[in-house]
Design a protein around this nucleic acid. Structure first.
Lengths: 337, 337
DNA sequence: CTGAAAGCGCTTACAG
DNA sequence: CTGAAAGCGCTTACAG
């Protein structure tokens, strides 16, 4: 079962040195083509497998990247971050790197315990996927290795982050509603909850400002408590003609609630979401929404972290990844537009 | 930025040998308590981090486990395997191990390319999560390291696998329908598609047999083509009183279709699913279904692979993980039961 | 073109 | 209780 063929074994059989075997297998200069071929053949014949650990040892590099996801984003109905991780993991392979997932449980976050992968030098860099609390951000900053925040950022932090352009996406989709004749538009989301929700709100607000529509405080609807648990959304009376929801899941819940109350979507009011996740197509009618470019977020995160491993002084700041509007059936053009 | 404090650095400062430092930090015998404390203090003070790679080198162990998921199970609406991976990853940490995710893309599966983590000795064992094709199973078997199949098995393979007790779960939930007075019960699923669907069908069949209900071929309904793509389900006429669906997603789709056709669930017919995934609660009414014990599957997989790393000759065979019925509102008790 | 020597950071015998 | 030596499997720099 155990397969412990090393370069030395190959070398012995061919009466050459391990240096020569290393050069041959690594396609380096300084070995005759003939010998090189011979070595390569014997290697495959002997089922030789390269030992990355030895290389790691020499280079002082683990060739692993840690991906930290706070536990609370890994619930049954949330696969967004796992999905990004999946892409990260795949993209890392192009660099000869591998991704180690680390779910940060709430206890460790509370007690400010850094993950073991850090203390064991298991990783050369860390991607933090999903907002952690302030105190934890501070302790992350003390880690002496390259790090990237993905899908959130911190004002005080001198840390590079990769985020969706929430502001602009929300701005654009609100513009789209206004172009369709809407001017009573509610925003659904707890604007003190996360930076994403807040930024999406501000994009919505900018759109209103540009179109001289006054911001109506009664049309800012709360969707969750401070722990992020969804609460029942209070419908304003009278109803606005459209709702900008901070995410598809909330748009889905709102749709259900409106239908229960006898309203028809989009005839009686229009609804837009954000994310383009599973809830966007589960909603009926399917949601017009802003698609978050998961692939690109993973891509930027990976490229940035690799860059920082090569050059630790490299700074990226906040990198915005543009989303795009997906048009479906939840928006009604108002007559006379 | 670079932190390259080694045991040697600590040793030098204290004018002792690295051996002593190693013993102290590892809480081994043979260092005075006093010196041990001194070393430990200096270590934290100097921000020393243990280098796992060196240990890997010595032990010939990477302390990583590869988790291979075929690409086709990682679509937008499928987070089941990612979820199991998440648990695996967490459980591995108790052993000082880490999980490396490897999405097996269809091309590599077709061309029988083994993952790079194998050729680079990046992992000490492999968990294959989700059914791969026959030819690929064969090549997996040639890999010279411990391996476990999770959520599928192969008749010919002399490989250990951890699977949900599909047969028994389906048997039980069909029994439940019969206890509620149903005797015209359809099964929904392509019974030639995967071993899970097939086994669930057989559990359903066993329940019918035990209750002397003849199997009606017209009530075996196809839900997907040979590539696993969902197809429109043809409703039998007359409708049976209940449907046993091979998974929640199909139960969800079926529910929608029946409602479109003017039927009420569960008044006009009952529906049960399998998995207890997001679709079970998304369905309206929410589904009575068999919950797959994800945690336990991950747990068994991890324990087994660790056992096999210690003892490569260990065999487990097929390990069944029991599910449990979750009772919700999609089943109607027939009058006169 | 080929190889002897040294080193990456630890640990495991073994000796004192 | 403490440490010198050897080794895990490679690669780099240097010498021939």
């Amino acid at each position: 079962m155990k397969n412990n063929v090393t370069m030395r074994d190959i070398a012995k059989k061919l009466s050459v040195s391990t240096v020569t075997v290393s050069k041959a297998l690594g396609d380096k200069e300084g070995v005759s083509e003939e010998l090189k071929a011979k070595i390569k053949n014997l290697a495959t014949e002997m089922n030789y497998r390269y030992n990355t650990t030895a290389k790691s040892m020499k280079d002082g590099l683990s060739y692993n990247i840690g991906v930290i996801i706070p536990e609370r984003f890994t619930g049954v109905s949330q696969s967004f971050y796992l999905r990004i991780y999946q892409h990260i993991s795949r993209l890392l392979e192009n660099y000869g790197y591998y991704g180690i997932l680390n779910i940060l449980n709430s206890e460790d976050e509370e007690q400010l315990n850094l993950p073991r992968i850090y203390y064991e030098k298991k990783v050369d860099g860390i991607i933090v996927l999903g907002q952690v609390n302030k105190a934890y951000i501070d302790i992350i900053e003390t880690m002496q290795l390259p790090k990237i925040f993905t899908d959130f950022y911190d004002e005080h932090a001198d840390i590079d982050s990769v985020i969706t352009d929430n502001f602009y996406g929300s701005y654009e989709i609100t513009n789209y509603l206004i172009q369709n004749g809407h001017c009573e538009i509610a925003y659904v989301g707890n604007i003190h909850s996360t930076s994403s929700i807040q930024d999406r709100f501000l994009g919505y607000y900018k759109s209103l400002l540009e179109h001289n529509i006054p911001l109506n405080q009664l049309l800012i609807l709360n969707d969750r408590d401070d722990k992020g648990i969804f609460i029942d959304i209070e419908l304003p009376n009278p109803l606005p003609t459209a709702f900008v929801c901070n995410c598809d899941q909330v748009a889905y819940l709102l749709t259900e609630k409106l239908i229960e109350n006898g309203f028809q979507i989009p005839q009686d009011c229009s609804i837009v979401g954000f994310d383009n996740d599973i809830y966007a197509t589960l909603s009926s009618p399917p949601l017009t929404t802003v698609e978050v470019d998961i692939e690109q977020m993973a891509n930027t995160s990976v490229n940035s972290i690799m860059e920082k491993i090569k050059n630790p002084d490299k700074r990226f700041g906040r990198v915005l990844v543009q989303g795009k509007i997906i048009y479906r059936d939840s928006v009604q053009a108002l007559i006379g537009t």
